[in-house]
């Protein structure tokens, strides 16, 4: 079993290496990248905005309800919302959501191409199928930090609405808390994390789709396995990067 894991890890890195070899014709690559930006990034904005707004709102309400001491300033609600959203919710939680949405889409689309021999057809034509299929996804996912930026913004707006219009604090208190002890490096840390997660989100599901064997049932199985592994790797990398940059 352990040898299988080691073999898979090796195969994953070989896949990454092969992805950057024998580039597809640039005109076709440009079309594919734009298509992937649409499929992976633009189509995810709706769900990200929706979830971010309401999670931001819940963070504000939970924080407000747990501060019963009158000596604790109300502005702490804004401060806690900002810290939670920028440091963890936007980069990590949204990445886990994307592992479900984008990851399973990538695995099932590549897996279906494997099952229906479309990948073999590319190889027979002398096209590097990994470059053709995976490289545009990696480049498209470089836009992922923009999604995270939108998530941060909308999350804070959600916290503002819930906090201010829910009657927990006023707008000035929220804005004061939002600006309190702001450390710009934490934003850099969040974007660096999301950039690394984007690479994981593009490559791990591709790996599970590309190397799957079997029929349509196995495509579904590969999509589930891909979601589990992408989430596990993101959570582990989250710990590793946090330990490395913040502790």
């Amino acid at each position: 079993m352990i040898s299988n894991y080691i073999k898979s890890i090796g195969q994953y890195f070989i896949m990454i290496y092969e992805t950057f070899k024998r580039m597809t014709k640039s005109s076709e690559l440009r079309r594919l990248i734009l298509q992937e930006i649409d499929d992976l990034i633009i189509s995810s904005l709706g769900i990200v905005v929706f979830i971010s707004f309401f999670i931001g709102a819940v963070i504000a309400i939970q924080t407000a309800l747990n501060f019963s001491n009158p000596f604790v300033p109300k502005s702490l609600i804004g401060f806690a919302a900002r810290q939670s959203i920028i440091l963890e919710f936007a980069p990590t939680f949204v990445s886990i959501i994307m592992a479900g949405k984008v990851g399973s889409y990538i695995t099932s689309s590549i897996g279906t191409m494997r099952v229906s021999e479309q990948i073999d057809a590319l190889e027979v034509m002398g096209i590097n199928s990994l470059n053709y299929l995976v490289f545009p996804k990696i480049i498209a996912m470089c836009m992922f930090p923009f999604v995270i930026a939108i998530s941060m913004f909308v999350g804070i707006i959600g916290a503002y609405f819930a906090g201010v219009y829910g009657g927990f604090l006023n707008a000035d208190q929220f804005l004061a808390g939002l600006q309190e002890d702001f450390i710009p490096f934490q934003v850099f840390y969040a974007f660096l994390k999301s950039f690394i997660f984007a690479f994981i989100l593009a490559t791990v599901p591709s790996f599970h789709g590309y190397y799957m064997r079997g029929g349509s049932l196995e495509v579904g199985h590969a999509a589930t396995t891909s979601f589990v592994w992408t989430s596990v790797i993101i959570i582990f990398m989250n710990y590793f990067i946090t330990q490395l940059l913040l502790s």
Binding site: T112, S116, E117, Q118, D120, A121, V124, M125, G126
Partner: peptide, 19 residues
């Protein structure tokens, strides 16, 4: 090998057309 692959045509069992 790349040159040879351009000289090959393949009809797959299921067609393998790009959906």
């Amino acid at each position: 090998k790349r040159e040879l692959s351009t000289q090959m045509g393949m009809v797959f069992q299921g067609g393998a057309l790009f959906d």
